[in-house]
Amino acid sequence: MKSFTNVNPENRQEVVSLLKKVIEEGKTASLAGGGSDLLGMIKDDLVAPDVVVNLKDLEGLQKIEPHSQGVRIGGLVTLQELSQHPLILSQYTVLAEAAGTVATPQIRNVGTVAGNICQRPWCWYFRQGFPCFKHGGDRCYSVVGQNQLHAIFGGGPSFIVHPSDTAPALMALEARFRIAGPDGERVVPASEFFVLPREEVSRENILGPDEVLVEIELPPARQNVKSTYVKIMDREAWTHAVLSVAAVLEIDQGVCRKARIVLGAVAPIPWHLPHVERMLVGQRITADLAGDAGRAAVSRAQPLAKNGYKIPLTEALVRRTLISLAG
């Protein structure tokens, strides 16, 4: 592996000033939460940071804290902790389930929630070092190449899919992300954190090179809410989603009062379906309505040559997820 300097800042201000300093010196820095993915990318010469900023020892970002305005989740909380935390399991089930489906126990034990949200694409062209848009190149190789796992929504000019499991869950929960940067901190809704390639092709979110995602804020848990995360993989363990559905339904006396449905692995960002949610609100979720919702979910899909199978898969998974949650 190429050599670099590892630094261990103690707090978020130190991280930001470190990043600023490294950039001013004309060098590059990479952030390491769990670090598993970063080290793989360095070994494969996909990134070559001069400085690795180890976030593991940052003060106060390893906790899940309930408070009057909801729940604060430190960016360094591991996926394992998130998947087993009693409050998350009971009140924010979709998030615990999503975290529990990530990779393997070994990865979940070190992998952090902020790292999972910010991980780079797993497009095979990107990971093999093809000079694609994501590497500063001038094309997306999947367009005329092997695009079985690529986007059916929101693609162009790059057709990567967002690889995170927790990101669709957090969008479905209307989470907000706290970002630390040189000008202080800002909080943005999860739905405004991710960016489509047509807006910004080289990265997947709004983070600048001197910014860091430090906390996730969940809104207060509501009564009568049921939520779930369903992940389809091409084998039963240790891989990314081919498709996933994060769904949060508020059902009172059999009637859907509120719905949030977000798809994973079908678009370059977690793919929110507001037009499907509007079909459900104020209705009893019957098998017929769930079927209509499934069809509506894929009505705007634009498949590539080899990923058309994702359309019936998405339609069926949305229908089944709604039926199982409402039942």
Binding site: Q80, P105, N109, V110, W238
Partner: peptide, 22 residues
């Protein structure tokens, strides 16, 4: 690359891939 698991060790009691940890 943290994919096969042959390097699994326990760090403070938790399993991890020792190839993917500095």
């Amino acid at each position: 690359r943290g994919e096969c698991g042959a390097c699994t060790v326990l760090l403070d009691g938790k399993s991890l891939y020792a190839c993917s940890y500095l």
